[in-house]
């Protein structure tokens, strides 16, 4: 019998992987991918939780919204990464340091 706990453990594991990637990696594209991973962990948790709270479909509907928003965020995010690359010829986060005092 698979309980909500199992789903949530998996979801927490995926979210943790995403968080580690976000903190450790220095490549902007990988950082954006890590954020996608975090969002997908959230989707998993929401859809699983919905199964155990079937009164409304709030969890499932939210997952759809998250997918749509993640797409929008990726589109804008990649555009910004491209314009950053045009200026600096790099996609590494540690080179975004022109404003350190």
């Amino acid at each position: 019998m698979i309980t909500l706990g199992h789903y949530l453990v998996l979801s927490v594991a995926i979210f943790t992987v995403g968080t580690i990637g976000f903190v450790v990696r220095r490549n902007l594209l990988v950082v954006l991918m890590s954020i996608e991973l975090q969002l997908n962990a959230v989707n998993l948790a929401l859809v699983a939780a919905n199964r155990f709270h079937p009164a409304s479909h709030a969890g499932q509907v939210t997952a759809f919204f998250i997918i749509a928003i993640a797409a929008a965020e990726a589109a804008v995010g990649l555009a910004i990464v491209v314009s950053f690359f045009r200026l600096r010829h790099t996609v590494r986060t540690d080179e975004a340091d022109r404003m350190r005092h």
């Binding site: 909500l4 949530l8 979801s11 979210f15 995403g18 976000f22 902007l28 950082v31 954006l32 954020i35 975090q38 969002l39 962990a41 959230v42 948790a45 929401l46 699983a48 939780a49 155990f52 709270h53 709030a58 969890g59 939210t62 998250i66 965020e73 804008v76 995010g77 910004i80 990464v81 950053f84 986060t93 975004a96």
Partner: peptide
């Protein structure tokens, strides 16, 4: 913009994960 993008997107993901747990 890059800095705001990364941190705001990650903080949204954290907020969402909290929402998912509260909802669960």
């Amino acid at each position: 913009s890059i800095k705001y993008l990364i941190l705001a997107a990650a903080s949204s993901a954290i907020l969402l994960f909290g929402m998912a747990l509260v909802y669960a």
